[in-house]
Amino acid sequence: MKEKKHEGSNVASGSGYHVPVLFHESLEALNIKPNGVYVDCTFGGGGHSRGILEKLGANGTLIAFDQDADAQRNLPDDKRVVFVPQNFRHLQRFLRLHKFPKVDGVLADLGVSSHQFDEGERGFSIRFEGPLDMRMDRRTELTAEKVLLTYTELQLHKLFEQYGEVTNSKTLAKHIVQNRKQSSLKTINDFRAMLHPVVKGNPNKYLAQVFQALRIEVNDEMGALKEMLQQLPQVLNPGARAAIITFHSIEDRLVKNFFKQGGFDEVIENPFVQEEKEVLLKVISKKPIVATEEETKRNPRSRSAKLRIAERI
């Protein structure tokens, strides 16, 4: 998938690295002030960041986070940009470090970049041969290979069920544990060969779900998302907004629940219990904003994207 310019915009989205989804919708959601301070939690190809910079004046600031070292190649030569080569779970810590304890908006696009999928040696995609790696931050130690070789059958079952919605996740986990000692699991093709007897339905779809589950686990994506969301009320100025784009039902549920009630569990209303909880965020988008038909034709991966917006009270 190649990067392209957005229609109606002169923003070049980042040199073949990644096509940003819900581009105009997410920029509009942030209500950008020319002299404000904004955070792009997932810089990637810099598409969303360039859009923010276009709306900022000379005194505005963009703070861009990305744990993937490859993303630094896409940094614009712009004095208004502060780059933080870290996971967004460390949002508050690094904002304080750079003397921006409060900001006017936070954007996060939780999708994996097209670049990561297209680099075979990263191990994210079933389309290429490569190592079973899947680390977004190559400074960390846990790889997909380690997960497959060391996790218990129950752990594997749960991660394939929850993060990949794999239909036969229990059978899959048992098969891996029974075969992992005598099979090599160094590469994607090794893994595909091992899985062949248990694949159900469309092989490409099945393997994509398995790979998604492993990627989420290797990068602790749900843990990082929870930590970032919990920091939003502390880092946002009153009236500032958070705009989060998700691609998976679990991510979307976490964002929805946190924006609505400041926590992650579904709240069951009990008329006999009056629990006063301080609400610090106001939901701006009652329903998630999704891609237009035009965008899904232009960029098929935008089909599963959901944008939710909240404002600091």
Rank of each mutant, 00 (worst) to 15 (best):
T61A: 11
R301M: 02
Q92A: 12
G57K: 10
D78W: 08
I63Y: 10
M134E: 07
D68K: 02
K287E: 14
V166Q: 00
I52S: 01
I188W: 03
L214S: 05
I188S: 03
D109N: 03
G105W: 02
Q116K: 09
H6C: 02
A310L: 08
I313G: 05
K186Y: 10
F272A: 09
L148Q: 10
L110R: 01
G130Y: 02
T143L: 03
F258A: 06
I250M: 12
F88L: 10
F211W: 08
R308D: 05
N299S: 11
Q261C: 00
E227A: 15
L97D: 09
E266Q: 08
K226W: 03
N59G: 08
F43K: 04
S15Q: 13
N59E: 15
V290G: 00
D190P: 04
L110F: 02
E153Q: 15
A108P: 09
V199P: 02
V198C: 07
E25Q: 15
P288A: 11
R89Q: 11
G8V: 02
L142H: 01
L232N: 06
G44S: 06
K4F: 15
T171C: 00
L214N: 05
P197E: 06
V279P: 03
I250N: 04
Q230Y: 01
V279C: 10
F65I: 11
T140W: 00
V112A: 00
N35G: 12
L281M: 12
A108H: 05
E217S: 13
L236W: 08
S9I: 01
Q231I: 12
T167P: 00
K256C: 03
D78L: 09
K146N: 11
V198N: 02
N74E: 13
D104C: 11
V273Q: 08
V198M: 06
H48P: 06
Y206C: 06
P20L: 10
E153D: 06
V279E: 14
V147K: 00
I245F: 01
R80I: 09
H90T: 12
F23Q: 00
K226M: 13
V37N: 01
Q274L: 13
T152Y: 06
S13I: 13
Y17Q: 02
V84G: 03
E119N: 12
R241C: 09
E251P: 08
A29P: 08
N179G: 04
V273A: 11
G60W: 06
L236N: 04
V112N: 00
F117E: 09
R303Y: 09
